[in-house]
Design a protein around this nucleic acid. Structure first.
Lengths: 213, 213, 213, 213
DNA sequence: TATGAATGAGGGTTCATTCAT
DNA sequence: GATGAATGAACCCTCATTCAT
């Protein structure tokens, strides 16, 4: 069991209040600038209690990361469960799942993004950093395993096709994340439709140029 | 003369030691978390001297930005001097110059990147923020102006071509930056040859798939 | 409630230790030169705690002033409650009350004196400054209102009588304050008797020379 | 010779510039808050030179005091050279001389006033403090020596007459000083006439009430 | 003589962390 | 379990003082 036992026994609502308050603070200000005062204020608990559950700011950070992993484990496992050879189709499903995860667990996704951004600042224990990198690498590997390269046009090296397509997808994702962090995330599901349509448009174009006729 | 006179008269080696120490600290931790203690420790000067040169942390930050501009001015001016309609050729020149700038002034480039990331945190005076945004906008505009879309294949919207190509370029650049920050930057110029060759290979593929025959 | 709640809940002894340490420091050195280090050293608390109670040096100063007002409010209210036309009798009662206040609250009186001296240095919020000036003006006005000038001898302008008598009273008060700050204040009440007797002697002489027979 | 020899050899104009700049700074801000930076800026000399002449802020303070004594010695000696028994006449001459000194040496008088005010703050060496107190005591003593008490009315103790008159004089002086520090000192000599007339008016009243007919 | 760059202790303030209750 | 008062190191910054030139 990763997180402090007494903390895990808490009624889930309060537990989540604390976790989300902490994740938001870390996501917004980064590890160093994050204020434990702000966390307890937002979570509605006392300073002492926070340090009773998590013995230090650093441990809190680590426990949040563990919590994030635990929560997303299932979602992530499904991410590539039915990977088929069509690379672009696979990317399409991956992006959809990614977006869905963001909608379901916005605190966690934002926190993970912030953790990932400052993963080399020295606040993660080597094991966790390695784990983080491994997870990232594994997902990467899964994403690029067993691609049916026979779908690609033959006048361009298939590795180039894969790389270029991947960069396009990542570029699109980053753009969307940037947009969302600027305007906040739409609350009603319908608002996401045009985003997906634009996305599908790009996928079509990618197919057009990278796949053989 | 932007930076404190007495500071500018310093022997260049020491001046650069201080500037680089400060830029590294700001680049690594951001404005708020950057520690003047860490800077003076790294630069090997006393606390008082730093504030004798730069009267405040904020002024130091601004002077560093001015220094970055002054140093890169010439490089940047040349960046798009002979832009032609061939979008991919244009990107090629831009990336080459960008890489060269990074190789010549790594501290400055990293510092500028960090400044740009937190440009809306309120630590830049309005004039500087506007200048930064203008520079960025201008470069962006220049990069995407007067593109000869007749070179693109006609079964895909030209906006899609432009976007997708851009994402590919940015993806490649980020990958190279990441690699450099992981392994350190090669010191001997010859080490960059394979990087450029890989790069040119990607450009060829991009031409192959996005340009008409 | 003016002063920080958690501070007000303190056991009175400790609260007074802190307040007096702070008031002494401000009274001795003025606002700017007063050292919070000296205050915490004198009060026997940590630096952090002082700023936990009072969020800044300035707020501490303001809270001390509020504390001084609160404490002296009752004493001050009574100061001129039964003013009659006999100017010297009025001064007598005022000085008695003033001395009694000084004996009971020496730290506060000295602090207030110092605050008043540097009231235009910009460390008081406008409201407090105005309040201070108003209080002073009101007391002044009350002290010199409705004086029965028919009691004065008629060969000297009554304004002269008032001014000269006032200067005598102030001179005497200052002398006593100086003496007390030199020798410390007597602890046993009986020690004040000779002071009052000397004082009454002067009042008799003033009556003799300024009042008509 | 009290003040640093090399400093005394300076051309008088520059010497005075430095002395006055320093005295003004101390008079305005007190010992602690006085800034050596402000002094050298005002005096137009370098930081190093100030500490070449005066080895420390404290020694500067002491040397300024010595300079003040030296300069005022002659004026002060004359203050009571022809003291006669008429106490009020004597006070009249003393006040006139005091005002004249203020007009002739405003920097010095203001500096001495400030020194006297904070003479117990611990910045004066014991010898100087004692000297200061002695001087003050001596002047006091001279002022109250050989008073012809037969001039006073006989229904009031002569000590009372002396004290009360003294307080009146001091009250008037303080009032004038306060007024001058508020409005600045008039530059043209004629402006002082009304002040003296008011003063003489008060002296007349004092004679009226304290002297026998 | 004269300079001003360089120092480091001390200024007010914040904040993660501890501990008596 | 739960609190928040209490701590002290570190924050940015100032300033009297020194010293190589």
């Amino acid at each position: 069991m990763r997180i402090n036992d007494t903390f895990r026994e808490l009624e889930p609502a309060k537990r989540l209040t604390i976790l989300n308050a902490a994740m938001d603070e870390f996501a917004q200000h980064g590890y160093e600038k994050a204020s434990t005062n702000a966390i307890v204020r937002e979570a509605g608990i006392s300073k002492g209690l926070l340090f009773y559950y998590f013995h230090s700011k650093e441990e809190l950070y680590h426990d949040l990361l563990a919590h994030a992993y635990d929560t997303l484990k299932d979602s992530l496992m499904l991410a590539f469960d039915s990977a088929d050879g069509d690379f672009i189709a696979r990317l399409r499903r991956a992006a959809e799942r990614k977006l869905r995860t963001y909608i379901e667990h916005p605190h966690i996704v934002r926190f993970l993004g912030a953790v990932f951004l400052e993963r080399n600042s020295g606040h993660l224990p080597p094991a966790m950093l390695e784990n983080l990198n491994n997870t990232y690498t594994t997902f990467r590997a899964q994403l690029y395993a067993n691609i049916d390269t026979s779908l690609f046009r033959d006048d361009v090296p298939p590795e180039h096709c894969i790389q270029l397509i991947r960069w396009c997808m990542e570029g699109y994702e980053k753009e969307m994340e940037a947009m969302m962090s600027r305007h906040g995330m739409p609350q009603e599901p319908g608002a996401y439709t045009p985003l997906f349509e634009a996305y599908y448009g790009y996928l079509d174009s990618l197919k057009q140029v990278f796949y053989r006729k």
